[in-house]
Write a protein that binds this DNA or RNA. Structure first.
Length: 549
DNA sequence: TCCGCTTGCACCTTTGAACCGC
DNA sequence: AGCGGTTCAAAGGTGCAAGCGG
């Protein structure tokens, strides 16, 4: 990792500072609407905020292989999602600096809808095809090294290459669940672990970095031939498809022919590319200038973010959205008294929403980031198993009890698999948000259900128990079963005042090599929405003029 | 019929254990 | 016995194409 070349430190993640005392961690898990936060700096320079956690604001993140990302972005990045989970390519890697070398941080990624549209690839470009499907459970991918010291993170590139995307709503592996043909925006969150190797306590501070060139549309098969070729050319695992005509030689070999055979899709794509694309450029004025394209860029929202990369905006083939390009914000979590021990490392978290009704109304189209919506504990290695299987075996919550016995730590409930209600956070045409009580006294098994954009959608992955209320407010952490050897216990209570730590780190486990964590709920990290970080409400705003189908 | 999704395939890289020599 | 380098097989990551289903 160290030898990998990091891109210049000129990356301009849109930043946001979490003001001291602000209660909302990851307040902007949403369609990434333009940030209007007054405190949001316009550049990667350290955002300003008050409070003792000054260093969190000085953290800088540089997207690795940003040029490659840009190349994909210019073509309209597509990411394959499969039932078994598919890695992202380019993979999300970043160079972090400005950390306190001795302070422990937790790095994690979530993927949030970039807008609320469903897309189709038509005439060699992505067009809006309707309203988005209800968002999948908002899972988080916690870097397996978490928590680790700043020195550790800064020593080398931070790679999230093992992050996988899936379209399996019941995915038991903790992969990030997405809807196909939807546009998403990955976000990197840096959370300062508190004195107990956890976050979620009153002093938790975090930063969020969003690189708009990492926006992508999830697909089950590639639509844009350009993207296919970029993947083949740049992804070592796809070397087998390289050739004089990229995949054509491969196809010829497969069919036992000694001449290139063009697949139907390739032929179709190339025909479209040579005609439709040109026509499209002519229509949009690409051939003569960027002005018109700029107007259709998804991030062309007029957001007061001066650090947006206008170049990307010019080149993105994606239909416009109201999202800002890059968002970077740092918050200091103060108001939440809940606290978690980071007893385990966990790569996945599942998000849910915990927002107040008041905030919902204020900040329309957005939903909470699962990440910081609740305390995080780093050593929830076993928690995934507990959540995924224990819950199934012991619907009444006995699974947690078992876990307690093994780990000797407070039980962590499987409610981490609680789904999020992303669209409930969007202000959907004035549909009010129905807040859930902050705790669920009697968890019961809930089968996964389609998310509703209006009403709370009780949902559980893999047979976890969730009450509707819990699901709304608790994020979930996922972990691959293989890694769940369990020491951490999960507590599922939503009660923000009486919960035992959700995660407990085994002694000496803090800096162990990558391990996947079991699903753990992070409590209390998303107290509410940041009033200063609101998003545009109208879904029709930026995106409609691009190419609504 | 169209479109999206799943599945199986071949090809490739990565990873780690096994082996060998110093 | 310990260390470092090499080899090799297994695991896993790719895109493609056929087939299925809504």
């Amino acid at each position: 990792m160290l030898q990998e070349k990091a891109s210049a430190v000129t990356d301009d993640p849109v930043s946001r500072v979490r003001p001291a005392g602000e209660t909302d961690l990851f307040p902007d898990r949403s369609q990434l609407g333009p940030s209007t936060a007054p405190s949001a700096p316009s550049a990667p320079s350290a955002p300003t905020s008050s409070g003792p956690d000054q260093n969190i604001e000085n953290i800088k993140v540089v997207l690795h292989e940003r040029e490659l990302w840009k190349r994909f972005h210019e073509a309209g990045t597509e990411m394959i999602i499969t039932k078994a989970g598919r890695r992202m390519f380019p993979s999300y890697k970043a160079k972090v600096s400005g950390m306190n070398p001795k302070t422990k941080y937790i790095l994690l990624i979530d993927v949030v809808p970039a807008d609320d549209h469903r897309y189709k690839f038509s005439e060699n470009k992505w067009m809006v095809a309707g309203k988005a499907e209800p968002a999948m459970p908002g899972r988080l991918y916690v870097h397996p090294d978490s928590p680790a010291t700043g020195a550790h993170w800064m020593r080398q590139l931070v790679s999230f290459q093992k992050l996988k995307l899936t379209n399996n709503h019941l995915d038991p592996f903790g992969h990030i669940i997405l809807n196909s043909m939807h546009k998403y925006q990955p976000r990197l969150h840096i959370v300062k672990a508190d004195e107990n190797n956890a976050f979620g306590s009153k002093n938790t501070a975090y930063c969020t970095h969003v690189f708009h060139e990492t926006t992508f549309i999830s697909v089950t098969s590639y639509q844009n031939h350009k993207i296919t070729q970029l993947k083949i050319e740049n992804n070592p695992f796809a070397k087998g498809f390289r050739g004089s005509e990229e995949g054509d030689l491969r196809a010829s070999r497969i069919e036992g022919k000694d001449y290139p055979v063009m697949s139907k899709s390739v032929v179709r794509q190339r025909i479209i590319s040579s005609h439709g694309h040109l026509a499209g450029k002519l229509r949009t004025g690409v051939l003569t200038g960027h002005s018109q394209v700029l107007s259709s860029y998804p991030y062309d929202t007029g957001a007061p973010l001066t650090n947006l990369d206008s170049q990307d905006a010019l080149s993105s083939p994606f239909p416009p959205s109201r999202d800002p390009g890059v968002v970077y914000h740092c918050f200091k979590h103060r108001d939440n008294s809940r606290h978690l021990e980071l007893g385990c490392k966990q790569p996945y978290l599942e998000s849910s929403s915990l927002i107040s009704e008041e905030r919902f109304f204020r900040s329309a189209p957005s939903y909470e980031s699962p990440l910081l919506s609740r305390p995080y504990c780093a050593d929830a290695i076993a928690s995934r198993e507990a959540c995924m299987y224990g819950g199934v075996e012991a619907p009444s919550g006995s699974g947690s009890g078992d876990r307690d016995e093994r780990s000797g730590s407070p039980a962590v409930n499987c409610n981490m698999w609680a789904p999020m209600q992303p669209y409930s956070r969007y202000s959907v045409d004035g549909v009010p948000y129905q807040p859930f009580p902050p705790h669920f006294p009697n968890p019961a098994p809930v089968l996964p259900q389609p998310a509703s954009s209006i009403l709370p959608r009780p949902q559980a992955d893999f047979g976890v128990y969730n009450s509707a209320m819990v699901q709304r407010s608790l994020p979930a952490v996922a972990q691959s079963p293989s890694s769940s050897s369990g020491s951490a216990a999960l507590t599922g209570s939503r009660d923000t005042t009486s919960h035992p730590p959700l995660y407990h780190k085994k002694p000496g486990s803090a800096l162990q090599p990558l391990k996947e964590f079991s699903a753990c709920s992070i409590q209390g990290m998303i107290p509410g929405r940041d009033p200063s970080y609101q998003h545009q409400m109208g879904l029709s705003g930026a995106g409609s003029h691009w190419s609504d189908g």
